[in-house]
Computed example of a mutant assay.
Amino acid sequence: MSFMTTLTPDADKVIPTGRIERVDGDYVLAFDLQLDYPRSYIWSLLTERERVAKWLGNLLDDWAVGHAYELDMDGGSASGTVLQYNPPLSLQITWEDELGGESVIEWRVLESAGGTLLQFRARTESSDFLTEGSVGWQTILEGLEAGAAGRTPDTGGDRWAPLREAYSREYSLSPSMGTVRKESGHTSVHFDRLLDADRDTVWQALTDTVRFSRWLAPGILQLQVGGEIKLDFPTFTLEGDVSYVLNDQALEYSWSSPEVRESSVHWLLSPAGSKTLLQLSHTLRSPGRTDVLLGQWHDRLDALAVMLAGGEAHPSAHRLDALCKFYRRVYGTGQASGGSS
């Protein structure tokens, strides 16, 4: 799905209409829509290709049990297999996105209150992109409602970010995606991650050489203003200077890599109950590849979460490449200027 779909900027609508539940260790995203249309009409919106194209994407072939399908969706794509096709009651498919994430999607179409109750369920093992996916499916289902009424879905404005935060807050789940912002006139790559560890533990993971070598890169860090940071990545060595330290809370150092010559990395930690909100801002002061930086930081922050959970991260070149391509599609070619000094 297109995670970055923009929505009408109406504060009253920036609320989750879906639920995220845990069922047998999986995550289940659930929507229940009461629609004032006949059941047969709603079923046609789910199954007739010309109607599916108006709210979901271009279905390259008809749904058929046991057969593979492909969907072209607003620059993205999805594919999978049809598990169940039971007119006019239910349609169940596997769903694999461009990053390799898998889930099982089911629509159930029930007669209710003189109209139709449309039940949507998406089940997955992982919480990766779950807040973003929740916003994406809410947007898509709002598009289905608009299409059912003969309206063109309203894609003006942007409530994607606050709606993602609303899902994250209500269900205590971490956002996954990074974003591109402007900070003090400079382009900045930004991530918010809700980590399942206290602030001291996360601070040690950022600053202790043994710990950060497990998820970021081997190296050294002198934890004082003017101190040295050196990180030995597989393809280059980063050498920079620490410019700011606030113990257990904030850290900033300079950064130069093949993707950007002049930049700075700023970490901010805030307690969030038993968890910690980590905010990462990588600010560019010269032209740089934001798509690559987003993909690389996304990959490394995933590794940090794995380490904090007691596991060992195993780098995947295929996963990293898929992340960079994903961010390139969302944000363009990624060659951004750093802004004025």
Score class of each variant (00 low, 15 high):
R51K: 15
L221G: 04
W137I: 01
A122Y: 00
F191D: 03
H186Q: 10
F129M: 08
Q92R: 14
G136S: 10
L308H: 00
M177S: 15
T237S: 13
G338W: 00
E165N: 13
E50D: 11
I140D: 05
L231N: 09
A305Q: 04
P162C: 05
Q138T: 02
R49N: 09
T276F: 06
V82S: 07
F31G: 05
G66H: 02
G311L: 09
E48L: 11
D302R: 06
L56N: 05
E48N: 12
V260N: 00
L293T: 03
A197M: 07
R39S: 10
T81V: 15
E145N: 11
L83F: 06
V28Q: 00
L141N: 08
D10A: 08
W137R: 08
G76N: 09
G75R: 02
V135F: 00
E252Q: 15
G101R: 14
Q204T: 12
T201C: 06
Y41S: 12
Y327T: 10
V202H: 04
D232Q: 08
P287Y: 07
S281I: 01
T81N: 14
G100T: 10
G101K: 12
R49M: 07
R329Q: 13
R211H: 11
A205C: 12
T8D: 09
I229C: 05
L33A: 14
E239W: 07
L45Q: 14
E252W: 12
D321V: 09
S256R: 10
G101Q: 13
V210G: 14
L141D: 02
W63H: 04
V14Q: 02
T47H: 03
R329G: 10
I105Y: 00
F191I: 04
P315L: 04
L195M: 01
A303V: 05
L308F: 07
W160E: 09
A313S: 15
L59D: 04
L130I: 04
Y171K: 00
D299K: 11
G178V: 05
G311N: 09
A322H: 04
M307K: 10
R169S: 06
L83E: 01
G75P: 07
E111F: 02
A113P: 04
E183G: 03
